[in-house]
């Protein structure tokens, strides 16, 4: 399976969409023969305003520095963005949409008019509340993304994020363990 893919993240400022794009690039940097580029569109965001971040993944070094993208994958990090952002904008016909939501897949497809696209749902807020005590959906969403795209196995993504968090030296064991669990649960539960 080709690992070349373009990913667009929709989140809210302060929620970790850029961190998620960065974490994914960091995970990929630890692998051989695969490259990533992560960036966001910067404007006059305020905390809580909708933000967009992008990740390009390819099997060769990425040289294109333009912002334009026709994504293969669109991730919605915040359930309250449903209906506020144009999920389908530029999305390839074969594109996949992964939504953090408590609604069912059928409800999301109907609500967003995503008939004909592959849609996946995962309740990343609930997972992170249970594992971390706070709604920080970005790490579980990386777990869900890994499953849907086949970029990483459950062990690879969980251990990879643990390594990255340990490297920063900023997080207590409990937080690191919580993130690991959140990724594993999201990997299992995304459907």
């Amino acid at each position: 399976m080709s690992k070349k893919m373009d990913i667009r993240w929709h989140g809210r400022a302060g929620q970790g969409a850029v961190t998620a794009a960065k974490t994914l690039a960091e995970l990929i940097s630890q692998e051989e023969g695969i490259y990533a580029q992560g960036f966001a569109v910067y404007g006059a965001e305020k905390r809580g305003a909708p933000v967009v971040a992008f990740t390009r993944v390819d099997e060769k070094p990425i040289r294109d520095h333009s912002e334009y993208m026709e994504p293969d994958i669109v991730l919605i990090l915040d359930p309250t963005l449903l209906g506020l952002v144009n999920v389908k904008e530029g999305l390839k016909k074969t594109g996949k949409v992964i939504v953090n939501t408590a609604f069912s897949k059928e409800e999301v497809i109907k609500e967003l008019g995503l008939e004909g696209y592959e849609v996946y749902v995962v309740d990343a807020n609930k997972i992170s509340m249970e594992t971390l005590g706070r709604a920080i959906p970005n790490t579980p969403m990386i777990g869900a993304l890994s499953k849907v795209t086949g970029l990483f196995t459950k062990e690879e993504v969980a251990n990879g994020v643990v390594e990255l968090l340990k490297e920063t030296g900023k997080f207590p064991e409990k937080i690191i363990e919580g993130n690991k669990k959140a990724i594993e649960i999201a990997y299992e539960e995304v459907k």
Partner: peptide
């Protein structure tokens, strides 16, 4: 280097 195109872009 170019503002944002590379300054704020994560590359490997």
């Amino acid at each position: 280097q170019d503002g944002f195109n590379t300054s704020h872009t994560i590359e490997i």
